[in-house]
Design a protein around this nucleic acid. Structure first.
Lengths: 353, 353
DNA sequence: CTGCTTTAGTAAAGCGGTTTAGTAAATGCG
DNA sequence: CGCATTTACTAAACCGCTTTACTAAAGCAG
């Protein structure tokens, strides 16, 4: 139904090849001929069929973005940034959610391969098996963002987790905290290791030689996990005076649980979050957090896909850590020394749902 | 480089037509032949080229989702839901952001047309000119979600704005409020009208005959606008005792401004939000809000695209309002009657940034 | 006027599927 | 056994664009 190149060519009294080449700028034409083509295009309302183009060219002018969950504000922000950057460069983005399921991660990578995606931005929250790296290997251009994929030969862009942990640790130490719990994704995750390591280092650096303790607790990056971990922490006879959480989702679960247990932040427990993209400044109390550069992660990934030197054999070895910063709000205070003495009695079950 | 249908056919000793028809289930084949094809497919790692398929078929098994802003939690949630529903049905989704710019709305609708999208879910925050409806007319299947597009002949799915307004109004009236400000998108927006109308009706219904007043203030659905509108409200000699906002983004701006001006919620000013998808229960104070069914909006839209009876001439006239509900939290209280007497003196500029 | 270069295009072969309209061989039936 | 039917497949056109290799005509130099 819509006009094809052939129609335009006929109307302009030319061959399809000529019109095609003119439209792609691979052929100089005298002004008069050019005008004839342009008139025909206008009159017929011609719009090239992108599928034909993609088939012929073997590429798609598409960037595929694979994330665990689109509704998660961190990934939503990242996605928005990828979309903006890509569309400024004339690329379409195709967005897919894995729900953190490996089979879907692989299926979506294969889909991107089938679709001849010009670039793929891959994010996961898990530590994927080597099969994921294998699926990745079929793609000409992938960049791994936010969490490592073992075995993948692809440039990687991360938030500076170690620095984030360090900032949190140092800040907490400054308030007198010596024992803090880190709640994040799985133990094996690069982000968990880096943040826990940074946390401990920051804590130590800020504690002037005193003994410090970091307890690494792991779960998933979701609210339910935050609740469970917080419950574990409170139920165990642990004497952590502060919690550093690996994502806002966990933070939410933790806050809910502390509140339900009448453990006040920051009086009874200090909290530092690893900020996705939420309005933590409006929370009660405003939550001190390490802010991740979600937008820059996305923008940088696209930039690398489009402008990186992919002929360079060394490109896949590139690892970038984008800087994070600590936003001090009101969820950190000096440890409450009274609490440990009477652990059960002063914890009343709250009525608030 | 990758194997094509022809390669498979050759390896199986058959014609491409046979293999194609077998793979699409349009040809019954004896088990032995079938096995030969399947073996060839496996050995060659054959995966059909989707671009060729789309070119040939003239469709793309794709659903295009067009939203103002992906990072906005409401649209992010909607997008997640569209993506999930669509991919369960074997459809790919293509996500695009308009930034609320009409030229982009149109360009993206045209892009969807070019791409032979099987369905389009269109969301806007503005009141688009008829050109948008025109661009839409070229598409075989569109559904309009969340805000009306004048002149569009397409089924529409909305949150029940009037009911949301009513619930908010009735709730506020119950606490004794008689004058409330509504802060939303433009005056011309369907959502604005419906919510304001519902608000007034609810207020009236809950006020036992007393006079009620609704002041409709409009801006954009973003934080900056919330700040500006709240400033306007406070600076004007208005005696509204409660604010009903049209989106969480506006709510955030409003809360920030009230806080900066030392106007306490709910003591000095009550607030009800129209909830996107944020953790309002953790805010200070927890924000009472009308909850929009973002997920159901998305799921229903996809359902309609894929299962609707599009031969039915009446389908484009379909308008559905999905139910909303009011979540009562702590941002509404009885109006503070003292405040009007001494408007300026008790408003101190806070130090908090 | 001849031969060479430039100009202005074009023919045709892909890209990799789908589909319509068949055909050749095998089978069933009377 | 001859004819109709069924089974098992296929030839070839088509979807709409790109690109390589080429040609015909015009322009130009000598």
């Amino acid at each position: 139904m819509p006009a094809s190149l052939k129609d335009v060519a006929r109307k302009a009294g030319l061959s399809p090849a000529t019109v095609s080449r003119h439209m792609n700028g691979t052929l100089e034409l005298p002004p008069e001929t050019r005008a004839r083509i342009e008139r025909a295009v206008r009159q017929l309302g011609y719009r090239p069929n992108p599928h034909a183009r993609r088939l012929s060219l073997g590429r798609s002018d598409t960037i595929t973005l694979i994330v665990p969950d689109i509704a998660n504000p961190f990934f939503a922000t990242l996605a928005a940034s990828v979309e903006r950057t890509a569309s400024e460069r004339g690329m379409i983005v195709q967005l897919h959610a894995t729900s953190n399921v490996e089979a879907r991660e692989i299926a979506l990578l294969e889909l991107a391969t089938d679709n001849r995606a010009d670039g793929v931005v891959f994010c996961t929250n898990r530590r994927p098996s080597p099969d994921v790296a294998t699926a990745m290997a079929a793609l000409p251009r992938v960049v791994v963002v936010d969490e490592a994929v073992p075995g993948a030969r692809a440039p990687q862009i991360y938030a500076d987790n170690a620095q984030g942990g360090y900032l949190a640790g140092h800040h907490l130490a400054g308030w007198g905290h010596r024992r803090v719990a880190y709640m994040g994704g799985g133990q094996a995750l690069m982000s968990t290791r880096q943040r826990a390591e940074g946390l401990e280092r920051g804590l130590r650096d800020g504690s002037g030689g005193e003994t410090v303790a970091v307890r690494v607790m792991s779960g998933q990056h979701d609210v339910a996990s935050g609740r469970a971990l917080a419950t574990d922490l409170l139920d165990g006879r642990d004497n952590a005076t502060a919690i550093f959480v690996g994502s806002d989702e966990i933070a939410i679960g933790v806050i809910e649980t502390l509140r339900a247990r009448n453990v006040r932040i920051p009086r009874d427990m200090s909290l530092v979050s690893f900020d996705g993209a939420r309005a933590l400044h409006l929370y009660d109390p405003p939550i001190t957090a390490v802010r991740q550069p979600a937008q820059r992660l996305g923008a940088r990934a696209v930039e690398l896909l489009l402008d990186g030197d992919w002929k360079d054999q060394a490109l896949p070895d590139l690892v970038e850590y984008l800087p994070v910063d600590l936003i001090e709000r009101a969820s950190v205070a000096a440890p409450n020394t009274t609490r440990n003495d009477q652990p059960e009695p002063d914890r009343q079950r709250s009525v608030t749902p």
